[in-house]
């Protein structure tokens, strides 16, 4: 998928652990790790809002769009 989740990068920048973040955003550890590993298919605005609040960042710091090879070939 061309959307990359940079949650681990932001967590490292803010020096915050997954446990701490899960407590702050009130998400389960398993859900956070789904998001962190890029397995998630969708993200709710409320989740994004909570994460941005907890990490003091913008949605663009967490999500990144990268053109993958397949969609490049289609053009």
């Amino acid at each position: 998928m061309p959307i990359i989740v940079n949650l681990d990068v932001m967590m490292a920048k803010r020096k915050i652990s997954l446990n701490e973040l899960s407590e702050r955003v009130e998400l389960t550890l398993s859900n956070l790790s789904i998001l962190k590993t890029g397995k998630a298919k969708a993200i709710r605005f409320s989740t994004l809002d909570a994460i941005c609040k907890a990490l003091d960042c913008q949605p663009g710091d967490i999500l990144e769009y990268v053109v993958d090879k397949e969609s490049k070939d289609d053009r």
Binding site: N31, I34, L35, A40, K41, A42, R44, T47
Partner: peptide, 8 residues
């Protein structure tokens, strides 16, 4: 259902 499970 799978998509719902993978929505965080």
């Amino acid at each position: 259902q799978k998509e719902n499970e993978l929505t965080v």
